[in-house]
Write a protein that binds this DNA or RNA. Structure first.
Lengths: 217, 217
DNA sequence: CCATTTTTGAAACAGTGTTTCTATAAGAAT
DNA sequence: ATTCTTATAGAAACACTGTTTCAAAAATGG
């Protein structure tokens, strides 16, 4: 992953401006617009993602963005979806393990790493960086898909009779919420230091595993 | 608690405008200004808390607010501190119980109730409603004080040898982070429904108690 | 009582998301 | 091909935000 700037900019494509992209189809233009917004997000944070800055980067009037996405929220939604893609990629990179506890631990680490590597994305997705944004049905579904590996672990553990929880969905949410809580408090500056936050995160994973899995060596 | 609008407006004081308050001392003026901001926060949400609206409510130019608080962040900090006071009051209202597990459960419920009753405050304090705001030393300390009851439970449980955790601070943070995670995902619209969120929250508390306390009837 | 310092308070500055509105380009119909 | 129609382009303006400026007024101190 040499160019982690955006999930869209694979194949090493350089940034496309408005005049170049508008010659092509609308989908390409939309694509490039999201790409521009994503690069600003990663380079300068969520506060820097403004309609005008994106328009400036694309060398186009702001109206074009409104034609394509309706509103800023429409553009933010695309960033949310791209964040889901990035997260899903991180989860997929975690080697599958026969020991489900170990596997879950690995996924937990990947989630932490994601939040630190793509902090701006994390804030957009779950940290209320754009407080106006609330995920609608499609975004929620995409997020659930990103959590696929966690879902699979819970499902498999339930099948094997290794899990104390009867409701798989609730178990996944419990894991997600607990880990998100640590990350969110840390990013919000409510936890003393990075080391302490890390230790807390580890303890949180361990606690979850201990709670959810039946106690047996 | 008939007038839950602000922690400041005890004694049934009515809202004081600038012209009335400026005759008195500066502290009273500051006091009234925070009161005005707090009432806007509760009535119209965090987005409605703007310097101009607060100034309008106080019938004064915006400059006065800058003289008193330096910046908007200075005013937001006061709202954070008042939120801590409100939370502390909710915790104090929970009847102390000899059974520490039960007591912790009660405090957990109080924390949920606080987040639902004072959602706007919760978002200001932990939900990134004002993304520019990061709590500094004083705010962090005030928050820790608000969590006093939780600290006491952990300390007492450790004394009695009822707790698995060696680091009390970490245990408190674990509880806080886990419960905050559920609330934050719920307020962010990431969890399906209110009932599901509530069930998840209950499960989270139970899990924490199970993890932290030594297993003994 | 005057000199100095501070505070007032309206207006302006720089930024935001969004909407007008005319001129231009694109597409469809004859 | 040439109209007629429709939609887009693109600059400017609107309504809002946090913050700063700067004359005038008020408060303070010698």
């Amino acid at each position: 992953m040499q160019d982690p700037s955006t999930a869209l900019s694979k194949k090493g494509r350089t940034l496309t401006t408005y005049q170049k992209a508008k010659l092509q189809h609308t989908e390409t233009l939309k694509f490039s617009m999201i790409e521009a917004a994503a690069s600003i997000l990663q380079e300068s944070g969520a506060e820097a993602v403004t309609i005008r800055k994106v328009a400036e980067k694309m060398e186009c009037p702001t109206k074009v963005i409104y034609n394509l996405f309706g509103s800023k929220e429409g553009l933010v939604k695309e960033l949310f979806l791209e964040g889901c893609t990035l997260l899903a990629a991180e989860f997929q990179a975690v080697p599958e393990q026969p020991d489900l506890k170990r596997y879950l631990y690995g996924l937990g680490q990947a989630y932490w790493d994601f939040s630190q590597k793509y902090t701006s994305y994390y804030r957009v997705m779950f940290g209320g960086a754009f407080s106006e944004f609330k995920p609608e049905e499609e975004s929620l579904q995409t997020m659930v898909t990103a959590l696929e590996q966690v879902n699979r672990i819970v499902a498999e553990a339930t099948e094997r009779g290794l899990m104390n929880e009867e409701d798989p969905k609730l178990a996944v949410e419990l894991i997600w919420a607990s880990l998100h809580g640590v990350i969110d408090l840390y990013l919000g500056g409510h936890l003393p230091g990075a080391a302490g936050a890390r230790a807390l995160y580890d303890k949180s994973i361990s606690g979850l595993i201990q709670t959810l899995f039946v106690q047996a060596n």
